[in-house]
Each structure stands twice: as structure tokens, then as C-alpha cells.
């Protein structure tokens, strides 16, 4: 019976069978309906003046304000500035974090000495170091980049270390038995085995690097979206605040979804896709 099962279990076409039940995508429609309902409710609450329309905008007005913001030279500048800062913050955080993480994870003494401290740093609110960054690097966008990178680096490191712990001895043994040199062992065993951790690390690096830059910009005026939001808020241009805030929110969500789609694709080989190197925040 088992032998028979072995034959029929996997279809001989070499393709996985995809069963698609009709109800499988039903929840998408419900989700869409819920999102629309929320927007409608918001609009209604605002129109009925249950809340002060001066302080809380409404979807239609926000929508109408999109061209205003896009036409505002200052807004476009701010977006460019912040986008650039975030980009570099992430690049630094990811590169330094990955290199540091592989070092920390593979050199035993380093791990003994510094894994604990790095883990502790992760739990520290990074914002308390902003004053030191300002003193050391001055009030400018470059400092925003450094602070953003600093906010992300440790998450990357810890997750890369977590990824290295996923490398299995038995796979290293196979590599050795089949004559893999040091380079092949790194490339074909260590790197792929640790990708889940590296991916989680890059993700946390992006998330925290982005947040770090935004926090920095809100803390001190160095231009960028932080300043823009503050300016709009002070001028009570609430529609515009919402355009910016919700715009960034939507971009974040879309990027996040794209990211997890890529990750799912790259980790098709994994038996379960939840081997997430957990780090907390």
C-alpha cells in the first residue's frame, strides 16, 4: 500500500497540483468591502460633524488635496530628501548589519562577548541617542541618515545571526563529503540556509531605518517629510497632512506586501515558511 501511495502521491507531470476552491478568494472581497465601509463611515462621521472638520479631514477632501500636495514644490522636495535619506540609511544598515551579523554569528568569541549586548541594544529606545547624534554630526540630513542606519543595524545583525543558526551540520557534512571547497560551502550551504534570517533582518532593517529617519526629521527640522508634516499641521492644512501620511502609509503597506511575496517565492524550498528569526519589535 505504501509503495502504491508513493506512486500516486506525487503527480507524474512534475508540476504541483493547485487546488483552487471557489470560496478561497471570497475573503478578499470581504476585505475590500470592509476597507470601503471604513472609508464611508469616516466620510459620514465627518459630514455629520460628529468631529470637528477643521481638525479631522474626510476621504473626499483628502483625495481632492492630492494634486495640491503633488503640485507643492516643497512637498516634492521633502519627499525627495526623505526618500534619499531613507535609502542610504537602509543601505548602510543592511550592509553593515549583514557583514556584522555574519561575523558575530560565525566567530564564537565575538558571539560569546557581544550577542547579549547587541540584543540589549535592540530593546533600547534608539531615540534617546538622537541628542548625541546631533552633537556629533550636526543638524543636517546626513545625521538623519546615520541615525536611521543606527536604528536598523542591530535588527539586521541579530536576524543574520539567527539565520546562521539555521545552517545544519548535516548539510555541511554533505558539502564536505562531496568535496566542496570553503567558497562553495559558503555559497551553496551557509548562504541559502541562512536566507530566512537574512531576509527577516533586511526587513527589520528597512522598517526601522525608515522609522528612524522619520523620527529624526520630526525631532529636529532638517527638511524632509517630518518638517513638511509639521508645517502643514501648524497651518491646519489637515487634508494635506493626511495626503502625506496616508500616502506614506499606503507605500509602506505595498512595499511590505511586495517584500513578503518575494520572500515567499525565494523560500519555496522551505517546508514551512514560518522559520522566522524572531527578534521582538
Amino acid at each position: 500500500m505504501t509503495a502504491l501511495q508513493e506512486v500516486i502521491q506525487v503527480p507524474p507531470t512534475g508540476k504541483k497540483v493547485r487546488r483552487r476552491r471557489p470560496s478561497q478568494s471570497a475573503h478578499r472581497w470581504v476585505l475590500l468591502a470592509v476597507v470601503i465601509a471604513l472609508l464611508v463611515a469616516w466620510e459620514a462621521v465627518s459630514r455629520l460633524e460628529w468631529v470637528n472638520p477643521m481638525f479631522v479631514s474626510r476621504p473626499t477632501d483628502i483625495f481632492a488635496a492630492i494634486p495640491d500636495v503633488l503640485g507643492d514644490e516643497k512637498a516634492v522636495d521633502a519627499l525627495t530628501t526623505t526618500g534619499t535619506s531613507i535609502w542610504w540609511a537602509i543601505v548602510y544598515a543592511v550592509i553593515i548589519g549583514i557583514v556584522g551579523g555574519y561575523l558575530l554569528g560565525s566567530v564564537q568569541v565575538l558571539r560569546d562577548a557581544f550577542y547579549g549586548p547587541v540584543n540589549f541594544i535592540i530593546g533600547i529606545p534608539k531615540s534617546i541617542f538622537i541628542p548625541i547624534f546631533l552633537l556629533a554630526f550636526g543638524i543636517n540630513t546626513q545625521t538623519a541618515i546615520y541615525y536611521g542606519a543606527f536604528s536598523g543595524i542591530f535588527y539586521v545583525m541579530i536576524n543574520v545571526v539567527g539565520g546562521l543558526d539555521l545552517v545544519e551540520d548535516r548539510h555541511m557534512m554533505v558539502a564536505r563529503a562531496y568535496g566542496a571547497s570553503w567558497w562553495y560551502r559558503v555559497r551553496d550551504i551557509v548562504l541559502p540556509a541562512s536566507t530566512p534570517g537574512v531576509f527577516a533582518g533586511i526587513w527589520y532593517g528597512i522598517k526601522n531605518g525608515l522609522q528612524g529617519v522619520l523620527i529624526f526629521e520630526l525631532f529636529i527640522s532638517v527638511g524632509g517629510l517630518g518638517s513638511l508634516i509639521k508645517t502643514y499641521t501648524n497651518r491646519l492644512e489637515i487634508d494635506r497632512v493626511f495626503v502625506v501620511v496616508l500616502g506614506i502609509a499606503v507605500i509602506s503597506i505595498v512595499l511590505g506586501e511586495i517584500w513578503s511575496a518575494i520572500e515567499r517565492r525565494l523560500s519555496r524550498w522551505r517546508p514551512s515558511s514560518t522559520a522566522n528569526a524572531d527578534t521582538g519589535v
Binding site: R170, H171, M173, V174, A177, Y178, D188, I189, P192, A193, T195, W269, R270, P271
Partner: peptide, 12 residues
């Protein structure tokens, strides 16, 4: 070598 638990590389 052929190992007991196959140990194919799961990502290949």
C-alpha cells in the same frame, strides 16, 4: 556517500 536521512539540499 549516501546518508541515512538523505540530506538533500532543500534549496536546490
Amino acid at each position: 556517500f549516501v546518508f541515512q536521512d538523505y540530506t538533500l539540499l532543500p534549496w536546490k
